[in-house]
Design a protein around this nucleic acid. Structure first.
Lengths: 260, 260
DNA sequence: GTAAAATTCTCATTTTATAAGAAATTCTAG
DNA sequence: CTAGAATTTCTTATAAAATGAGAATTTTAC
């Protein structure tokens, strides 16, 4: 355990299900002497990445809330896409959850979401949540823009039920790429269906998707063209705004650099 | 520069105004050789605390979104208070911004906010934003629950305009403590007024506040008792829920510990 | 008030980080 | 496609920092 990993391993213990740990628990879990963990935890408390709670428990610190905010207000994808999610929800013919998601390591992470107020069911798509790479339209619209060795590497890390499954997945990917959008049914949450389009910006290294999720029960075939049209329109709009934000950033850096 | 500080110093460069940096810029800014920064940045990219953007720029990584989510769904204060903010907004006699805030080092940080849809002005109170310790009702309701040496230490770090100012501040603090709530006018945002009550839980180490912010123009004296009653009621309710969450956590840890 | 638990401290030893420059890779403009 | 520039990684001896066992101290709980 060295470098940043030393700290990361501790942070990775914290989850929604288990959000507070004592030093002794951490020490056992990482098989590291408690005197060492005490020192590291103290450092992280100073930096506000951890904070002490009651008992002798520690939990994630407010630094995450602060940096999350900075991302929310400066990340080009979130900045460009967030404002459109509500509009998309309002224009969809039936009640929906609308999601911006992107690649995060070997998973897909939701970075912004808007649920119509009338949408009842809980979905797995909420900001900050990791999603499987190979299930759901949201994820598929992201990987369908990746090709070659990179795609191969990503796919090889996944556990397909069978070789048959893998073949089908790759075939679907191809046809979705041609169609320009994805559709899946119940792959992530039962009773829900998803439509998605790709969002990308090479210069900014953005590989993402915009998706709308509906209750299967609400859905009629006649809705499909409207859903598709909405996603396509807003998808392009988001890409356009990402570009504008990119140019702003460039201009800003140019200015700050020339001043120096 | 050693330990976690090594990493923290880099992260602290990133802000809403300046959200992407090249290695060379970081290197200059921290007066550290670029070969060192390259290594550190690479580590942080692997851990997803940074990510590479276009050009040779780096920005904050998705790890913050992930951990922020875990906090949002597990932090007792946020979990207990978040659901009441909207209710509070709806029961207030005039349009409002409603905020949960807590101590964060030597500042106050907003950890949850709900703005009535009809509230026009932008306020400084948004989740993740740091606020001054000595201005605004939101902050005052937090420090008014701190006493003795701890209070002294906190206050001594602040720059008061004059000794007179400091005296007045301490006097106001005393009288607010007696009244049980705070009121300030235009200390943070011009044209806005704030009311706040304390939220605390010793066992969980929570020193926080619940506040409602209004447009001065909308406000009539007859609103005051209603505002005060709402804040007090919801403040107590939030504290009650924090307590319940605390007991849940205790039970959970008791179970998981006895299993082992 | 006291025993147990939590936390900090000490220090010899091991491990890791540092930084200068070389080497390799990636980008860019023609 | 290619040369040159910019970016990034690698190599290395040396300096610096982390480790962990156990003692010492502080805090907590009853």
């Amino acid at each position: 355990m060295s470098g940043f990993q030393r700290y990361k391993k501790i942070l990775d213990l914290f989850s929604e299900e288990r959000s507070s740990w004592t030093v002794l628990e951490i020490s056992k879990s990482l098989k590291t002497p408690s005197s060492t963990i005490y020192r590291i935890v103290r450092e992280m408390v100073t930096a506000e990445f951890l904070e002490s709670a009651s008992g002798s428990y520690f939990r994630l610190g407010p630094a995450f809330i602060k940096f999350n905010r900075i991302i929310k207000f400066s990340d080009p994808l979130v900045r460009a896409g967030q404002p459109f999610l509500k509009k998309l929800a309002n224009e969809n013919p039936i009640t929906s959850v609308n999601v911006l998601a992107r690649l995060y390591g070997n998973n897909v992470m939701c970075v912004a979401d808007y649920k119509s107020p009338s949408f009842k069911k809980n979905t797995s798509y909420q900001r900050g949540k990791l999603m499987p790479l190979i299930y759901g339209a949201t994820s598929r619209a992201i990987i369908m823009q990746i090709t070659g060795k990179r795609l191969e590497d990503l796919i090889n890390l996944e556990n397909f039920k069978s070789d048959e499954d893998k073949k089908n997945f790759l075939k679907d990917l191809k046809s979705d790429r041609k169609k320009g959008y994805c559709f899946t049914e119940g792959q992530v949450d039962k009773g829900l269906i998803g439509f998605a389009v790709s969002i990308s910006n090479k210069k900014l290294g953005i590989e993402a998707s915009l998706s709308s999720i509906f209750n299967l029960d609400d859905f009629l075939l006649e809705h499909e063209p409207i859903i598709y049209a909405n996603l396509t329109t807003y998808g392009l709009l988001v890409e356009k705004y990402i570009n504008e934000i990119f140019e702003d950033i460039q201009k800003y850096h140019h200015e700050t650099n020339s001043i120096r």
